[in-house]
Each structure stands twice: as structure tokens, then as C-alpha cells.
Design a binder for these strands. Structure first.
Lengths: 144, 144
DNA sequence: CTGAATCCCTATGGATACTG
DNA sequence: CAGTATCCATAGGGATTCAG
């Protein structure tokens, strides 16, 4: 679409722009021209350093704080707290306090959080599947 | 669901742990005990502020630098450059330079990048679908 | 047009110590 | 156990300037 400019009149077969995606599903990726900010803001939440991991773990069922911390390898207690607060604020995770002698707090996904399970799952699967490929790509890039 | 607790020796019906996920698919979310770091490192790449947006846009076809910048709302030139370099390094995006009078550079997803399309798409869809829900959850949280 | 380089501020996040 | 509070280091990222 962006004309020929300068020298060459060619390049008409550019496979891009508003066509494409023949038999595929419609989706919001086309170009988030203004919507972008919204997408970004929401993405930021689950796009931070730990949210996806925490959601992934919680996708298997409720867990208390300490159990969560054990299952998310390198996370600090501070970061786990912050991450959980954020997720709670966004309605992705719910927090239940039990007034017991040694305090017990359980976290679990809300329905909204559950709706993320498939995606987080897919993400984890993708990373697992392609992690080697990425590693080698990096080596190749750093070398050449 | 989670029993009465307090002075209870019970809580055996906890819906968590290594069972669950009956008829669902197996996945790497179970607990990334050691794998976690790997997942994190890879996730960091696409989990940064812009990668998902850029991948989403590129999922529709190759684009040159300026076109990309236009389509990703708030991104600065610096951040677009950095994001593209990272994605290129990870083998998700390829960069093609055309030796023309005014330099032209086109970016497009590699096969590896293409394999991310479905997920990014799903993510964008999810955000679009639930963004309002999240907004209201935030308001509720901030209020209460 | 594409992008490297610089400046500089802020958010992120780790370590540690302290509480109910 | 489940946090909160501090201190502090660094990465993220915006604005601006310079260059091929």
C-alpha cells in the first residue's frame, strides 16, 4: 500500500496489509491502532516477570503462600506478594484468609483467572517446545 | 469448597496437587520446579513491554520499520529497534535490508515466530474480551 | 528512512530485617 | 506462616540528538 517511492516501482506483491488471513479466524491483531494502549495496559499485568508462572501454578488448584513460593523457583517473598496483590486486584486471583493459629492464606484462580488457563498453558508449552530452538538462535546471532 | 479449617486435621479433599486435570491435556504447568528458570528466561523475551504487540502486528505479514512504528501505538523508535533486535536474536523475527536510495528494511516473522501466532492471537483476544472485566475488578479492589 | 548513541528518570525487583 | 518495610542496584524505557 505504501507506494513505490523513490527509485523502484516494483514490490507490488507485498503479502501484507489488510488482506491476508483467508480462511483463518478474525482477531484483534490486525493493528491495535488506538486499542493498543488498552492491550498494553492489560498485557503489562500478566506480562510482568512472575504472573504467568504464578497463574500456571495456580491453574492446578488453590495453594497457600508458602506452597506457591516453593513451586515458583526463583521468586522472592516480596515479589510473590506483589504479584499476588496485582493479580488479585485484576480479579484474576482470589485470596482467602483463615483465622487460624498459624495464619493460613490460600490463593486460587477466579473464573476470570481460569479463562487464562488455556493461554498460559499454551505459552508454557510453547516455551518448552521451542526453548532449544531459541537458545541456538541466540548462539547463532551472537556468533555471526 | 475448602473445608471449615481452623482446628481441622482434615482438608484432604484439597483439589490440588498432582492429580487433577482428568480429561484435559498434559502440560508443563504442573510445577516448573527447576524448569522454572528456563521458562522464565524465555518468557522474559516475549514478556517484555512490546514484543507481543510487535509479533501480533507482524503476524499479518512483513512490514518495514516505519510502518511497524505506526501500528504499535506508543512505541518509541528506540524501543522498536531494541524489541526487533531481541526478537531477531531469538529467531522469532527476520530482518531484510534492501540496498535502496532511502534505506528500506523489512521485518517478518520466521517460522518460529509464526508458531507463536496462535498464542499471541489468543492473548490479544483474551485481553480484548476481558479488558472491561479487569477494569471493573480494579475499581472494585481500589474501592473496597 | 533506519537506526545508533546519549542522557536521565522510573519501575522492577533482590536482600534483608521486622511484625502479627 | 504470611506478610510489611527499607535499602539499594539495575533494567526498562522515554526524549533527544546524531549519522549512514
Amino acid at each position: 500500500m505504501y507506494a513505490e517511492h523513490t527509485g523502484d516501482p516494483d514490490r507490488a506483491a507485498a503479502p501484507h496489509q489488510d488482506d491476508a488471513w483467508p480462511a483463518d479466524a478474525p482477531h484483534p491483531c490486525e493493528s491495535w491502532p488506538d486499542n493498543g494502549r488498552t492491550v498494553r495496559e492489560t498485557l503489562d499485568r500478566i506480562g510482568d516477570k512472575w504472573s504467568v508462572l504464578v497463574i500456571g501454578i495456580l491453574s492446578r488448584g488453590p495453594l497457600r503462600f508458602s506452597a506457591l513460593q516453593q513451586r515458583v523457583p526463583g521468586i522472592s517473598q516480596r515479589m510473590l506478594t506483589l504479584t499476588l496483590r496485582h493479580l488479585e486486584r485484576d480479579g484474576v486471583v482470589s485470596r482467602t484468609v483463615y483465622a487460624e493459629v498459624p495464619p493460613r492464606v490460600e490463593y486460587q484462580l477466579t473464573p476470570l483467572g481460569e479463562s487464562l488457563r488455556t493461554i498460559v498453558h499454551a505459552l508454557a508449552q510453547w516455551v518448552t517446545d521451542h526453548h532449544e530452538e531459541i537458545e541456538s538462535a541466540r548462539r547463532r546471532y551472537d556468533a555471526g
